[in-house]
Design a protein around this nucleic acid. Structure first.
Lengths: 338, 338
DNA sequence: CTGAAAGCGCTTACAG
DNA sequence: CTGAAAGCGCTTACAG
């Protein structure tokens, strides 16, 4: 395991010079020395030891991407990724981090775990968090003294950098799309509305659209539950008993929407003829079901990319103050609304 | 940032004693000292610096999970996780690593990248690789001197620890299931058969089953291509022109199988009445399409778990020689075969 | 432009 | 059971 000392010896220079070459501080090294050192580095197949560097300079090239267990499935099952959203996001984050020379540490975090110890443990350079709750920021994510980028997190405090989607506008768009297509009895399916998050925002958009078109809203039009495929099925069986109350449903998540579609079909309810369904996310699985899911699409790849770019800007001190990036949504017209 | 030195000072002991307490070498510390030190550690909110530890002892608690770019989608698109298989697997690996006190570094690796430098860079403790090709083991994965666990990799050399699925038996099972249900004109869809991997094994099982039942096989019954949803669609359009040559298809991957089903439907071919389809993997997305996909199910969660367990056994030197774990498959009877 | 040396926070023989 | 000290591989003022 070649070290900087060994390189220095062979090249007949000091370790400092080697270090300067490695770190491309070329003003400090004459070009002839530089070439000599680079040759030895090449020959010896030298790879810098980042543990040593991080010990000394208190930074690594590690970025943690953390998903709170609270927003995923049963933490004892290993099935959180049933929603392809997660896979697509981590994929994008890894891709863009790698491009910028960083390493990705991925982790689910529990209530009882404080991410700050992980950050200290590894001198982690920065953290990206998906869908944290406000209260978690003062527990799980407290005491982190490196750049922290929040994805899909809504909090009042202006001290965090956030990447979100036009959730509220998307909710409005979905609702107006249904109204414009002649539907008048619009229910909504969401996860817990009480907690500040994407579900709440999308719900807000739904409420807004209804109100601005002079439509009534009643509590009974809202179905809340844990956002899984099974929950969609369950909602379908509840709707089956109240058929004539609805002619369309806005579901805040594609996965749940597909569950709803399949559940409705099982109940003998035709989609979209009896009840239309519109989703939110734009996952590719919306292509798979029948009828194919009409949905509000967000760009998950862009979400990961923007998060990484913002983080890197923070790390390079190219960004002042707090940034708030909101990504646009588009509508994907398929067959579950007609 | 509390260090071991500071703890030592406050507890009036040497750093060695603190180190021994932290590392639970309790035979070396009297219980009274131990308690005192533990109290100070608690008070000061001490977190060990693993960079320092890894610098000294040449191990970290980091495990790399690497996926070669060769087996995923276009490396320039960030869409490799379209197949939910990846998400489920990484999910399981993270879960079980965390349980054992390890940190997960996740990375796609390119042809031109040698994973060994990453291992050296971080004093990585072990590596888990998904679906490597034989040639990659001598390039991308060469020169790794820590435990290396291969998932879904078939190589002749007996020097690697592997976790695989009963791919060949599964291929046989799928084929026999179709035969037992009266189908006689069985095509197969796979990725490249030429490369040693799961596709080849599943194909082998298909060939075996045909042979042992006295059925003929011809090259034209096999469709090879890049394993995506779109490939399934494409195969469907090719099959449409040769309708009467097939009454059932065995598709080596659920994602492709669903593409095939939807493609066939678009071509006006009924599934399963005109052509039955059986998949392989047992992904939840097989529930979403219509008809629901009959498939050979592997246990992806178990795959991740076994990989982690085997790796940890290697790290603890609880495993001698090379281990080869083959996980069973089961058939999930749904509606795409009748 | 270059070097000698201290020090980052740990672990670990060695000596008592 | 406990301590003093060396050293892991780097970076970085400081001095020349």
């Amino acid at each position: 395991m070649a070290s900087i000392t060994e390189i220095a010896k062979r090249a007949n220079v000091s370790t400092m010079t080697v270090s300067n070459v490695i770190n491309k501080k070329y003003q400090k090294v004459s070009s002839s020395t530089r070439e000599r050192v680079e040759k030895v580095i090449e020959e010896m197949n030298y790879v810098p030891n980042l543990s040593a560097r991080s010990l000394k300079s208190n930074n690594s090239k590690i970025i943690v991407f953390a998903i709170p267990q609270t927003i995923v499935d049963d933490p004892n099952k290993d099935s959180a990724f049933t929603n392809p959203f997660y896979g697509e996001l981590i994929n994008s984050i890894e891709f863009h981090l790698r491009e910028k020379g960083y390493y990705l540490m991925f982790r689910f975090v529990n209530d009882d775990e404080r991410l700050s110890s992980m950050v200290k443990t590894w001198s982690v350079d920065g953290v990206i968090v998906l869908g944290a709750l406000e209260k978690e920021l003062s527990t799980i994510f407290a005491d982190i003294h490196v750049p922290l980028i929040l994805i899909d997190t809504y909090i009042d405090s202006p001290e965090y950098d956030c990447i979100t989607t036009e959730d509220e506008a998307g909710g409005r768009m979905a609702t107006e799309y249904l109204l414009d297509h002649g539907y008048r009895k619009l229910g909504m399916v969401a996860s817990s509305i009480g907690e500040t998050g994407v579900a709440q925002k999308r719900y807000q958009g739904y409420r807004d659209a209804l109100a601005s078109r002079g439509m009534r809203f009643e509590e009974s039009m809202l179905f809340e539950g844990f956002p899984s495929y099974e929950f969609g099925i369950e909602v379908a069986s509840r709707i089956a008993k109240r058929k004539d109350e609805f002619d369309a449903m806005f579901v805040y998540s594609d996965l749940v929407a597909i569950g709803l579609i399949n559940g409705l079909k099982n109940q003998g309810i035709r989609v979209p003829q009896d009840i239309a369904v519109i989703g939110f996310d734009g996952l590719f699985i919306g292509e798979l079901c029948e009828p194919r899911l009409t949905t509000i699409k967000q760009d998950i790849g862009a979400k990961g990319q923007k998060a990484v770019e913002l983080l890197v800007r923070k790390l390079n001190r190219d960004s002042e103050g707090v940034e708030n990036i909101v990504l646009p949504v588009t509508i994907v017209e398929r067959d579950s609304v007609v």
